[in-house]
Design a protein around this nucleic acid. Structure first.
Lengths: 151, 151
DNA sequence: TTATACTCTACTAATTTGGTAGATTTATCA
DNA sequence: TGATAAATCTACCAAATTAGTAGAGTATAA
């Protein structure tokens, strides 16, 4: 399971991506429309800012903007920023490799090989899917849904 | 990341799979050879027993045995028993589906569609890989490793 | 009948998760 | 120039989870 925080981050980015190009969205607007606790969202957006995903404007008329097009922000990088390493085992992490201290050899480890495959499968999806894709998939699903019969 | 407990469970099952057919392995043997805290391993094996993965014999000469061949125990089912639902979102879990309370529609959710793909990719690996596969991959990797030059 | 090995229940310390609270800084507008 | 609106920063907190320990109880084989 990904954390609630990561969910909020991805949904906040979707909101920013849906916003008007160039017009900043304020924390409270995003919090209200996406049902995210405002003070929590503040922290999340600061994290995303530090990592170069969004930028901010202070003062009246301030708010947040995407720093890159939504089609260039992947789920994988956002998840890494918010939840940390994606790998299922520390010894398989690209960004935070750490030997398992109870394990006595990565070659002979009976679970590492299998989880290596898991990690690759996950990464293939997470780094090919972008915020823009998420929006597109959602919009298409809604458009293709059977019309609710009225009456 | 999977939990330490899940790692222990999978390695304990590998140990049982490597053991002599029909000869039970004791908790303390497994704990010693696999570097697992004994009392913690006790609990893990009880969980696996309750879920029909292993069986136990009490008293002298007692111990644990696999209830099914190692080639029929998948990583996925073990992970589910120890760590709970595999899905990245509660609304994507097969065994523990739960609506996201802050989300107002699964079709229109911008992150669900992407994570649905992640979940499928993960499951494809986790439910095709068995304890026997893990052992086989490890043994092959060791056999194929370049001989360490002695001298 | 006793030693051995599994079983059960309870407890605990440390970390992570999912937030709140409040003071501060910066920019805009009147 | 001063009020106001917005982001920023630091600190705190409760609940849940993780990774175990402790110890008494129970079944069984020799």
């Amino acid at each position: 399971m990904i954390s609630q925080k990561a969910k909020y981050a991805l949904r906040a980015l979707s909101a920013l991506a849906r916003g008007e190009e160039g017009r900043p969205l304020q924390i409270s607007e995003i919090a209200a429309t996406q049902n995210i606790p405002k003070k929590f969202l503040e922290q999340i957006l600061l994290d995303l800012k530090r990592e170069g995903i969004v930028r901010s404007l202070r003062g009246k008329q301030g708010g947040y903007l995407l720093l890159r097009p939504a089609a260039e922000i992947t789920f994988g990088e956002v998840l890494r920023i918010i939840d940390g390493p994606l790998a299922p085992l520390p010894c398989l992490s690209i960004t935070a490799y750490r030997r398992c201290d109870d394990c006595d050899g990565e070659l002979s480890c009976e679970i590492r090989h299998v989880f290596h495959r898991v990690a690759e499968a996950e990464r293939a999806v997470l780094f090919s899917a972008t915020i823009a894709d998420g929006i597109h998939l959602a919009d298409r699903a809604v458009a293709e849904a059977p019309e609710p019969v009225d009456g």
